[in-house]
Design a protein around this nucleic acid. Structure first.
Lengths: 145, 145
DNA sequence: GATCTATAGACAACCTGGTTGTCTACATCG
DNA sequence: CGATGTAGACAACCAGGTTGTCTATAGATC
């Protein structure tokens, strides 16, 4: 419950803050997906693999991302079957904002608990998660630490 | 990510273990719902309020719980409109098992991190979550499965 | 006692994020 | 060349949630 509550707290704060900066359309999944797409883009199937999800689910997520203007879809030049997803400037902006807000949230925690205790939580959880071989979560880059 | 990863780790471990003990049908939601119903039972609307969810959602959850034999539904004697949900012995067994498994999981964490560091994580998170009154199931992320 | 209002729960339609299964178009390997 | 594998579209479905509408009953008020 503590873990879930703290997670929810972060996500809610993040999206409240994103909303204030004109990204009210963004849903929690979008950040993860944009991160997974990466700066160089990715195909639908590739996105599905990175998120640990079926390509059909990835397609739905990508459709949502395109609708709010966070990514573009265009056919691949190398592979006649593939569709390449690329982050738009607005998508990049959302990611950068998210990173800044995460930092800001962490600072409020530090203010309340002190640097040492926040670090203790992070290190402890990292050790627990690392020892589990839970590759799917570990695959999600960037926001960790 | 750390918080989400650790939460998933617990939930996955818990249900793997429950499965071994003949409760493979149990879904994460069921434990929370059984807990919310309490030893004395609750009506549908009451369950919804306790879970922080609409009564319609509570009704669906209750239907699932009844189907796998964790609760019974019978009309209230005091209120002609109400339906009282009560935990069956099997439901109680599942809850007791869950509690034991949680304790067991926590012990493995203590073995790996030491008593002090686990307590530091718990206390720190408790402090962060405190005040935001975030103890309802509706506050839990949708990816529990 | 009659009536007005609030509540319990059923039913239905819909949303989101996922699944599986089937299909076509294209890629790649022997 | 043909066999096989992969990308993605389309459709049906599931779980857990929502809102809206409906009935029956409970409680308060005249």
């Amino acid at each position: 419950m503590l873990l879930a509550g703290a997670f929810r707290e972060i996500i809610d704060d993040l999206h409240a803050e994103l909303d204030k900066h004109g990204h009210g359309e963004a849903r929690p999944l979008h950040g993860f997906a944009l991160q997974a797409i990466g700066p160089d883009g990715a195909t639908l199937s590739e996105l599905g693999r990175r998120l640990g999800v079926s390509k059909q689910a990835a397609a739905k997520t990508a459709a949502g991302l395109e609708e709010i203007g966070y990514i573009t879809r265009r056919p691949s030049t190398q592979d006649g079957r593939a569709v390449v997803l690329t982050r738009t400037p607005r998508g990049e902006e959302m990611l950068n904002l998210s990173a800044a807000i995460f930092e800001q949230i962490r600072r409020t925690w530090v203010r309340r608990l002190g640097q040492g205790r926040v670090a203790a939580i992070e290190d402890g959880l990292a050790e627990i998660v690392a020892g589990s071989g839970r590759a799917k979560i570990g695959d999600l880059p960037g926001w960790i630490r």
